[in-house]
Design a protein around this nucleic acid. Sequence first.
DNA 1: TATTGTTATACTCTATAACTATA
DNA 2: TATAGTTATAGAGTATAACAATA
Lengths: 164, 164
Amino acid sequence: MTSQSESASADDHRGFGLLLVQLGYHAARMFGELLEPLGLEQRHAGMLSRLAANEGKSQQALGELLGLNATRMVFLVDELEQRGLVERRRNPADRRSHALYLTDEGRDMLGRAQQVISGHEQQLSAALTDTERGQLLRLLRRVADEQGLAAQSMPGVYKPVRGD
Amino acid sequence: MTSQSESASADDHRGFGLLLVQLGYHAARMFGELLEPLGLEQRHAGMLSRLAANEGKSQQALGELLGLNATRMVFLVDELEQRGLVERRRNPADRRSHALYLTDEGRDMLGRAQQVISGHEQQLSAALTDTERGQLLRLLRRVADEQGLAAQSMPGVYKPVRGD
DNA sequence: TATTGTTATACTCTATAACTATA
DNA sequence: TATAGTTATAGAGTATAACAATA
């Protein structure tokens, strides 16, 4: 009855929130595809970059930083260790814990992943001028900060949506 | 060694792409939480709003529009039918197909979901002035259009990232 | 035989809980 | 006994493929 949601091209009632969801999902998928040639998935890249800034921390400590529980950390570190990118070292002081380090290959891979990220940014912002991109970046950071999103938390992390 | 990624508060190197991923995930989660009191999940809300603009279409036709395959459509329509929100009607002309319609309750529920969406927008943009929000919205739409994101596709849809 | 929708099966991802070794 | 990490189990969600009804 209300001829408000009929036409297709002018019918962009996407608000702020849904646009963010849609774009975020799109960006994540694109990111995953760009990482494929490196044999990495998003979680791997996230872990590598985060580990680079926190080498020597225990598996558990890093997990808390990233928002990953113990089980997921085990699997993720396993995957990276099998690829030769990170290394578990026994802590002599407390032999229960594993301190995590990047290998040389891990550092190398991180560099390549960061190049992928740069390309990702460029592809995503192809529609914008440099000025506009800066503007958009500033606005998004404001929103992210206000929403309490820490710079270091993993975006790909699935937190339970319904599990209260 | 490079003292570039040590401090926590000033260490916001999040670029455009990762911010979008992070914010998109956050927005999706928040949206899901806001819908919980209605007994809906995101996919339900997405289907209801999309169906409202396409009543009478077949299950398959609507699935294509949303980017959902036949199996997922069956489950999703089942869920909505069990809640009494949508109705399958046999098409007399071709009795294989099911045309989909919103029930009165479905229309009612859609209205409530749209209110939830409004609240969602407001919560997300709490950090911004009206002018800034308009600016952000315009920029995001430009990006989304350039990336070929159709206004009607479901954001919560999981497309296979690795399945080539 | 082809098409719409449905059901069955297998696979991936995740979290919870049980377990091992150190402390 | 408590803690770091690991492994086992079960659950949700998905896609592929087999199936039934209709064309």
